[in-house]
Amino acid sequence: MQQVASAGFLAEAAESPARELEDFDALVSKYWPKVFRFALASLRDPDAAGDVAQDCLWKAHLHAAGFRGASSVNTWLMQIAVNLVRDRARNRRLRFWKQTRESAVDWQELGGRLPEAASGPEATAAAREQVEAVWRATARLPERQRTVFLLRFVEEMDLLEIAAATGLREGTVKTHLFRALEAVRRQVGGVR
């Protein structure tokens, strides 16, 4: 599955990636959901996520000529998004609000977005509990761990793609990912 996705990205990169970036409307149509989702999961603020997604796509469009196709358009966009999210997260004002809102994520809303498989009150309650646990764990993760975690488990990027998007070495990505997973596992109820 991942190999298929990676192959898709490579094929995508092979077919004139700069041209894809030049058509702003097409760029938005294709990549907005993905960039917005990553920003939303990172910042937990739909407005801020919208701004990040807009800035990300606009920057990519403006610098289309500078894109050499060393990575896929998707990875390149995520690289821009990672930087924008990091800048936002470091903004003092936002940090203040983030602290006050950290526990204010709408768990009901998130729990209500569970897949159909979680049918039945008990299964739904258990699934909701799990989702809340992962959200809490990711909220407490250091910035890099959280970014790597989200890119891997929400965006389903492989380690090399994450390394390209974050500017980290593959080994460092792996270390961050394992630490993040360890924290999540404990929160979800790991015994070791």
Binding site: V28, W32, P33, F36, R37, L40, A41, P46, D47, A49, G50, D51, A53, Q54, E109, L110, G111, G112, R113, L114, P115, A118, A127, Q130, V131, A133, V134, W135, F153, V154, E156, L181, V184, R185, V188, G189, G190
Partner: peptide, 28 residues
């Protein structure tokens, strides 16, 4: 349990994003 939690988390993020994305795009 861990894999299930990660899967549920991914689905919840995607669901949340799908719900908020059009409005955010419209606002932008």
């Amino acid at each position: 349990r861990l894999e299930s939690a990660l899967g549920q988390f991914r689905e919840s993020v995607r669901g949340w994003s799908d719900q908020r994305s059009p409005a955010a795009l419209e606002r932008v």
